[in-house]
Amino acid sequence: MGKAYAGRPVLDDVSFTLDAGERLLLLGPSGSGKSTLLNIICALARPDRGEVRLGDELLAAPSGAGRGDALRRAHIAIIFQGLRLVSALSVWGNLALAQRLQTGRSDPGAIAVLLERLGLGHRADARPHELSQGEAQRAAIARALVVRPQLLIADEPTSALDHANAKVVAELLDELAREAGASLLVATHDDRLTSHFPRQLRLDSGRLAA
């Protein structure tokens, strides 16, 4: 696919597949086009050329065709760089809201299990501003996974973390995606994560490097 802003190409001939359950690291410096690529994959932006498919379904296309919103709601979870937890809700409330938006109801059992799994059981009632950076990161991961996505996308999940915490988060993402059977796509400029991902793609000036 390709995408340009104001005539300046941001993505050029980018093409790749991600298999079910596969874990992929998308590396690239700032301005390489990572964010644009993730926007298109999440159906938040349209490509100028080419298309994105989730299984057999069209996710994003230049014409706007496809079931982007519905597919994203049902099958894709995103961990944003800024985490974007809803500040007015507790950790538990954030997870419950994600479930309700996806299925119309919440599953307290699944929330409790996941929070325990991520070491946040005792922080379920805490509000986002009461969490440490590491806790907030884990809460954002929990919110993404609680909806049992087919595709988990993480944007710079370790950018604000020290080496030890970055390692923990990378391992956790790997482990949880594996347990959930979800494909994992992590976009980062952080080379520390390369050892955790068997497959890596490098984006440079909008083009995939070999």
């Binding site: 999440c42 938040l44 919103d69 994203r72 709601r73 049902a74 995103i78 944003f80 974007r84 809803v86 500040s87 007015a88 809201l97 994600a98 938006l101 996806q102």
Partner: peptide, 15 residues
């Protein structure tokens, strides 16, 4: 302004 981000997030999540 503060709410925009939250509500946009909700839209992305399926609202």
């Amino acid at each position: 302004r503060a709410r925009e981000g939250d509500l946009a997030l909700l839209r992305v999540m399926g609202a």
